[in-house]
Design a protein around this nucleic acid. Structure first.
Lengths: 360, 360
DNA sequence: ATGAAAGCGCTAACAT
DNA sequence: ATGTTAGCGCTTTCAT
């Protein structure tokens, strides 16, 4: 018995409204070719019956897809969750739903996730993780994505990728430059960098900005220690420890993202090293909590939610002949974790720090 | 011309493998009724052709859905993003994709999002936001969900809801009790609560725990000031200001989530009030940054990622006759934001604080 | 064990 | 302006 169905179909609506299923379809789609009166009646009955179109049937039949995909490295990470927030906002405004995957920064997992999204025939795809400097790591994903694009799929990426797609490009270089200049301006020259893996374009680009600023200031960019660890809070802790041990003369730690900077602050606090008295610390991204730390973190603001929104916008627009690039400014935010270089004495040869004037 | 198709279909695979489409389907599904050799051959050709099943066709044809829905209040909020992380982890392990919606704590928006998820015929639905104390606010959502469940959909919720569904239930009551006892044990009696809207079950339950502990200690639960503001960092700031102004004798602020606690810490720091010297502060949830704050935040740990995983697990299991409840313990985590009540003088009648012994 | 064929609910020609 | 109908790609009886 048909009436015991669980969910009403378009046919049921058409029936109840006394029109053909085609007319009902047109009415629901708001398409042309239906008289206003009929369209209205159809929509009203649909409402009454609690009709909700079956997206699967719709997309199978060639109708446009109303779901978009979002790929992030780790949704639990504030950087990505803020991007996701922007994507979700815009999506819900346009009546789209979002499928989110996280890849754990593993190119292979990323590939699997992309495949799955493609299998779901999402209408658009936003890829939010950093790319890899080594293009070959992205080669398979790239091929997959190109096939997807060839089939009419739309792709936008956030950050620099070896993918031919519309891109939202945060100005990592300029941002890193400005935070480096800020430290330089405070008199710091013994700067150490707490970096994530250099295989990530984000790390590479920010590092390039740091070194450019150093070079501009007449310093030897190659002389600055770059300590590499996972691009996370724990990685930041590790970096701080190693920097303190291996480069004791350091007066400023420039972390390449906020997560690492937060880890640095925690480690320094545990070691009883005053910030910014003895060592200044900077981050990058300006995650929501950055201003609530003690000391407030000096960092470079990236408008993550806006970036997410903009990426989805790009992906939703008609494709251009050439990939579009949407640059995003990175703005220095000075808080309390940076200060003028402290007055303590460092033995130039041994690098040993004398306690003179040291304020912890 | 058929060969110019973009994506291979099952028919193409069947063709290439020299079997019928039905056999191909069985082989791919790993179903019984195909000889091992044939099944193998089919799978190999599928692999070769880069075949990926069309999810829409599959689900239209009555095959099981491989996507699950997740509803959160705000994905940018660490509490929810950590839950989401757990959900995504388990999902990807089971080959499922996740559609995420955020509702901005608005019941109407929540309803829209649920509708959209239902329209997508997701196989399971996890609802992670706090419920509302007022059942009528959830009535429509409830009806929608019941219809969904009747149609074979599976639902699990995190937190107390007026929904007949499997539930992961964090022990908000006991957690609140233990953190309150902790403060009491440190000698605090002038406690003020920084709360989110009492319309949220989470707030109501935690508040009940606080008052229970107060009552157990022989104090008048009704006498404790409960300052209400948005359940966010900014709300926390607001609460701290108001508490300082309206209840100057307060020696401990008990915030009902970490976000509010973080806001409190920031506001207190700006106002030059030492924590925990002058005022102790506690949170609830133990978001990832809680330990990285200065002072480290004393709070109640909820295993958010685990809760997300468990909720999805519940939703994926065969439904029981009665809704299942999966209790989750809440564990007190003592850090540096709480300390023994300070030695300053409060005028019992006016509540004015004398600077005596005040250590800021 | 394998194949043929009937839908799943919808959209988009193609009639009228 | 409205109706008829042929698929979309798959799963699943029902035959064989």
């Amino acid at each position: 018995m048909r009436s015991s169905r669980t969910t009403p179909r378009l046919a049921d609506v058409a029936n109840a409204a006394g029109v053909s299923i085609a007319t009902a379809s047109r009415a629901m789609a708001g398409a042309t070719g239906v008289s206003e009166g009929v369209a209205d009646r159809v929509r009203r009955t649909a409402e009454q019956l609690g009709y909700v179109a079956n997206v699967h049937a719709r997309s199978l039949a060639g109708g446009s897809s109303t779901t978009v995909g979002l790929v992030v490295h780790e949704i639990g990470d504030p950087y990505f969750s803020e991007i996701a927030s922007g994507v979700l906002d815009l999506a819900s405004g346009r009546g789209l739903t979002v499928q989110i995957c996280h890849t754990g920064r593993d190119p292979e997992s990323e590939l699997r996730q992309i495949r799955s999204l493609v299998a779901h025939r999402v209408g658009a795809l936003v890829i939010a993780g950093s790319g890899f400097v080594d293009a070959s790591l992205e080669a398979t994903a790239r091929a997959e994505l190109e096939q997807y694009a060839a089939a009419g799929g739309r792709v936008a990426v956030i950050g620099r990728h070896h993918l031919r797609a519309d891109a939202v490009l945060p100005d990592n270089l300029e941002g890193a430059r400005s935070v480096t200049s800020h430290l330089l301006g405070l008199g710091h020259t013994a700067i150490a960098v707490a970096a994530g893996s250099r295989t990530l374009t984000t790390v590479a680009d920010r590092l390039a900005g740091v070194q450019a600023a150093l070079g501009d200031a007449g310093l030897d960019p190659g002389a600055v220690p770059v300590v590499e660890a996972p691009f996370t809070r724990d990685g930041g802790r590790e970096c701080a420890s190693r920097i303190l041990a291996e480069h004791p003369a350091t007066t400023a730690i420039l972390a390449l993202n906020d997560d690492m900077a937060i880890g640095c602050l925690t480690q320094l606090r545990r070691d009883g090293v005053s910030v910014p008295g003895r060592v200044s610390v900077t981050g990058f991204d300006d995650v929501a909590v950055a201003g609530d730390l003690a000391p407030g973190l000096t960092t470079v603001r990236l408008p993550m939610a806006e970036m997410g929104r903009r990426a989805l916008e790009l992906a939703l627009r008609e494709p251009g002949k050439r990939p579009r690039r949407s640059p995003v400014g990175a703005e220095l935010v000075v808080r309390d974790s940076t200060g003028p270089v402290g007055s303590f004495v460092v033995d130039a040869t041994t690098g040993a720090v004398a306690a003179a004037g040291r304020r912890t």
